[in-house]
Design a protein around this nucleic acid. Structure first.
Length: 309
DNA sequence: CATCGATGTTGAG
DNA sequence: TCAACCTCGATGG
């Protein structure tokens, strides 16, 4: 499932293509019919992500709160190039004009972003169980399989935000760092578990959890209150770096200092992207020790028993 | 083609 | 602690 970086990228797509426009909101599947009626015909005024939660604001103080959960996904279609979907740095416009006329396309944004398929007509028919369809004159977004899809008032949004720890995309200042360090160091719970707790810090999932702890050489079983301030600060800053890179690249690449060839390999193949995630039984890329795997609070934990002490 | 497991969270017990 | 959510790519026949 999407970790924090994908959700920010999705919010960015809404900002770029939907904010400011009048939206036809419907529920082709029917399970969100009442909510869709509340939003239908309203203008979207803002799109924002905090951790793995996304908030689409519509005129009249109405918000659509969406959490993709384990297998939720957004499909976008319309006059949008895939290059634009797959990069954030503005060259989407360039490739659009270099191709010539904009073409109709559909692409998916979930834990992985899938390249665009051409579509015949706009808007395309909904594929599968579409909980919500948001349609403007030239773009459409279909939501499938979310854990949460709820219309909220400002108080409801605040309630959701109150459950979330800091997100380095929204707040990279000293206050956020302080909050994270306190959240980690006040509890006796294992740091491997604390990083997955969205009240401690927002947006980290199972891959980033394993990789951050390896990058900082921290034993996942070490209780939060036994981490030094220096270790906690290092985790926060490394999370900020990984998250910004993930939002920029649309890719969870948690190894750095790679040669050009290794970088290309990592972009191509998922199993060449990580230090320890999903590598149980394989040799540690640093010391050769077998990477271990164990259950921690119902999720699989991966680590190097030699490097992480 | 059937089955499994997943980058997540909630709520029942 | 565990099932449910109810998607879909990977895996095995």
């Amino acid at each position: 499932m999407p970790e924090g970086h994908s959700v920010h990228r999705i919010a960015n797509q809404f900002t770029r293509h939907f904010v400011g426009k009048r939206c036809e909101v419907s529920s082709p599947q029917g399970r969100f019919a009442a909510g869709a009626r509340e939003l239908d015909g309203k203008r979207m005024v803002a799109a924002r992500a905090v951790g793995k939660q996304m908030f689409l604001e519509f005129e009249g103080d109405l918000f659509l709160r969406v959490h993709l959960g384990l297998y939720g996904a957004w499909d976008f279609a319309g006059v949008i190039s895939s290059a634009e979907a797959l990069s954030e740095d503005g060259d989407g416009e360039e490739s659009l004009s270099s191709i010539g006329a904009p073409r109709l396309a559909r692409y998916r944004m979930a834990e992985q972003e899938r390249a665009a398929d051409p579509i015949e007509a706009f808007p395309p028919d909904p594929v599968g169980q579409v909980r919500v369809r948001i349609l403007t004159e030239d773009t459409v977004a279909d939501l499938r399989g979310p854990t949460a899809c709820v219309v909220e008032d400002p108080a409801g949004v605040q309630k959701a935000l109150d459950k979330l720890g800091p997100d380095p995309i929204n707040d990279d200042g000293p206050e956020a760092e302080k909050t994270f360090v306190e959240n980690v160091r006040k509890r006796r719970v294992a740091i491997g578990q604390l990083l997955m707790d969205q009240a401690v810090v927002s947006g980290i999932g199972n891959i980033y959890r394993a990789e951050l702890l390896f990058r900082q050489r921290i034993d996942p079983y070490k209780p939060g209150n036994e981490l030094t301030v220096k270790q906690a600060k290092a985790l926060w800053h490394d999370w900020s770096e990984l998250l910004h890179a993930g939002v920029r690249d649309g890719l969870m690449l948690t190894m750095d200092g790679l040669s050009k060839a290794d970088h290309a390999k990592a972009v191509r193949s998922r199993k060449d992207r990580h230090w320890v995630y999903h590598r149980e039984g394989e040799p540690c890329r640093v010391c050769g020790t077998e990477i271990r795997m164990a259950d921690m609070a119902g999720r699989k934990l991966y680590w190097c028993p030699k490097d992480q002490k």
